[in-house]
Nucleic acid binder design. Structure first.
Lengths: 206, 206
DNA sequence: TGAATGACAGATTTCAATTTCTGTCATTCA
DNA sequence: TGAATGACAGAAATTGAAATCTGTCATTCA
């Protein structure tokens, strides 16, 4: 029996408020122990009410994960449209992604581990799979736009921008895939990151 | 209680024979259910005898994993010393590593999953960690030698061959790290592989 | 009348009792 | 005499009974 938490101020019950509470509960209890009843209790309502807004616990987890992933994608969007040469934006974008992931992993290891664990199990027809795939498509889409603008500027070259974006993204997996999070605190990781980005940028030179 | 297996012909009990039997037992029962008693039974000896040759079950697992990893490294060694331009050897080596991993994952999923599971948990001071690290060092060492020879030939360029090797190796993680094994049967994976290797080779051009 | 409730059935998780395994070592065997 | 054995203690895994959770829905509430 978890300790009672303060019910949130009793505004109307909205999906957004439920997601807020869900994230808080996940942070507190972790992915295995967080229950729908816990979420309802945090909101001061019965768990039946939660089911009025989300069809299942799985749907709730999908929504809260999507929210979390979208936050990262939105932060990076500003780099895509920045006013700088494409190679510089490409470097900044990759560094930004790495930094965002590292920050999340470092600042709130509980929640990061929680989301990683949620995402990890995307075996069968899990609905999370499509949420994650959409997120990955968002990110490679941003990369594609940077590369395309570089080709227009004449500062980058690639036969197929989307394929190049995918290649760059998977080449840097070590610096953004949560499975490698334990390595992110290694002292030499910055040097490895720089060496890899240098190599990739050389490969994309006109 | 697992079905009795044929005791292997009763030659002298050597570490090599024990490792052979261990691999067989792992293949049959998987990493969770394989016991030292099972290995001893497969050899027709008591489990006490196994402990004469390996100090612990962990040591036995390390040795059998090392054997498995070394087999891959040895196959690739011939590509390193082949008589071909370095860029070609680099491509062949990466393709060889990918093919070897894919073959192992496809031909004997049980055993592959078994070793992946064994390796996966290299959290704390597991002895497996150093076995795996040595393996990774072997592989990046081979890559380093290819790159160095390419620099001597004038067919490749890199400020720091060892750093470049490390960058190439981690850039291709998606095609050799067991955590990505489920993706290896995706139809577009070959195209992704080729696109990435092309990009990396462009980055290493003189 | 539309949102919220809480009792309920079936699914899942937890926990402690029991079984099985690891690693040791005094003894046996050849 | 050196290798092999098997009984044993403590550690780890398994199991199934009990507790908890998910998802539904007839009923209450405002």
């Amino acid at each position: 029996m978890p300790p009672q938490s303060e019910p949130v101020a009793s505004t109307a019950l909205t999906p957004e408020r439920i997601l807020e509470a869900t994230e808080e509960v996940l942070r507190r209890y972790g992915p295995n122990k967080a229950t729908v009843v816990d979420v309802a209790r945090a909101l001061g309502v019965s768990h039946g009410s939660v089911y009025r807004h989300f069809a299942s616990k799985a749907a709730l987890r999908e929504a809260v994960t999507k929210r979390w992933l979208d936050r990262t994608a939105n932060q990076l969007e500003s780099i895509v449209t920045a006013d700088a040469p494409a190679p510089e934006r490409l470097r900044d974008w990759l560094a930004g992604l790495f930094a965002a992931k590292r920050r999340k992993a470092g600042d709130d290891p509980e929640l990061f581990a929680t989301y990683s664990a949620l995402i990890e199990r995307l075996g069968g027809g899990s609905g999370l799979e499509s949420v994650v795939n959409r997120h990955l498509a968002d990110l490679t889409g941003q990369l594609t736009r940077i590369i395309e603008s570089g080709i227009r500027q004449g500062t980058l070259a690639a036969p197929d921008p989307a394929a190049a974006a995918e290649a760059v993204f998977s080449a840097t997996a070590r610096f953004h895939d949560p499975v490698y999070a334990p390595e992110w605190s290694h002292p030499d990781i910055e040097a490895s990151f720089t060496a890899l980005v240098d190599l990739l940028l050389r490969g994309l030179r006109p």
